[in-house]
Computed example of a mutant assay.
Amino acid sequence: MTDNRTIINPADLHDPRPFGYSHIVFAPGETVYLAGQYASDADGQVAVEGFAAQVELSLENLRRALTAVGLGFENVVRLGSFIVDHDEEKLAVLNKALRYTWGERLPAQTLSGVATLALPGMLVEIDAIAVRPAP
C-alpha cells in the first residue's frame, strides 16, 4: 500500500522523531480505530514476559489487526501507548521498536505511564488510529 500520510513537524516545535513520534499526521480517507493491543496469545493471556518482548508482540498483534482490515503500518496516523511503571529505559525500548516499524515516518503518539493494565503481567498496551485511503 501507498503511504498517503502527510507528516508535519513544525520548525518552531522540538524535533519529536528522536522520541518516537511526529507532531502532526493526517491522511484523506476512512478512519479506522484499533483497540489496544498487548502481548496476548490466542486465548487473550499475556504470552511473554519482559518489556521488550511485550512491545514486540504488541506491535505484531497491531500488525495482525491492521492486516485483518486490509491496512498496514503505513496507514497508522496515531498511537496511544500505555506503559506500566514508565521510565527512560522503557521509553528507549519503545522508541527503538517504533523507529524499526515506521522509520522516519512516525505516527503521532501519546504515551501514558500507568500503574497497571487490564491483566496481571501486562507491561504495555498500544492502540492506534489508521486511515483507509480514499478510493
Rank of each mutant, 00 (worst) to 15 (best):
D3A: 00
D3Q: 01
N4G: 04
R5D: 08
R5V: 00
T6C: 00
T6D: 11
T6I: 03
N9F: 06
D12N: 15
D12K: 14
L13K: 15
L13G: 05
H14N: 15
D15R: 12
P16N: 12
P16E: 07
R17W: 07
R17V: 11
R17P: 03
P18Y: 07
G20E: 14
Y21L: 04
Y21N: 06
S22A: 09
H23A: 12
I24K: 09
V25L: 00
F26N: 14
A27H: 04
P28F: 00
G29M: 01
E30W: 01
E30D: 13
T31G: 09
Y33T: 08
Y33W: 07
Y33V: 02
L34H: 09
L34A: 09
A35W: 05
A35G: 14
G36V: 09
Q37E: 13
A39M: 13
A39I: 05
S40P: 05
S40E: 15
D41F: 02
A42N: 15
G44C: 06
G44P: 10
A47V: 06
A47Y: 06
E49L: 11
F51K: 04
A52E: 11
A52R: 07
A53H: 08
E56I: 09
E56F: 07
S58G: 14
L59D: 05
L59M: 12
L59C: 10
E60V: 03
N61L: 01
R64W: 03
A65H: 08
L66Q: 08
L66W: 01
L66C: 05
A68C: 06
A68M: 02
G70E: 13
L71I: 02
L71M: 09
L71D: 08
G72L: 00
G72R: 00
F73R: 11
F73V: 04
F73W: 10
E74K: 00
E74T: 00
V76F: 01
V77Y: 01
V77D: 03
R78Y: 06
G80A: 12
G80H: 07
S81N: 02
F82T: 06
I83Q: 08
V84F: 06
V84C: 08
H86E: 11
E88M: 09
E89Q: 14
K90C: 10
K90W: 11
K90H: 07
A92E: 15
A92H: 13
A92Y: 01
V93G: 12
A97F: 03
L98N: 04
L98P: 02
R99K: 14
R99Y: 08
T101Q: 14
T101C: 05
T101G: 04
G103S: 12
G103V: 04
E104Q: 13
E104G: 05
R105I: 01
L106N: 13
L106Y: 10
A108K: 10
A108T: 10
A108N: 11
L111D: 09
S112K: 13
G113N: 09
V114Y: 09
A115L: 13
A115V: 14
A115N: 11
T116A: 15
P120R: 13
M122P: 01
M122R: 08
L123Y: 01
L123V: 09
L123K: 03
V124E: 00
V124D: 00
E125C: 15
I126L: 10
D127S: 15
A130F: 03
A130V: 04
V131Y: 02
V131T: 10
R132W: 03
R132P: 06
R132I: 00
A134L: 13
P135C: 06
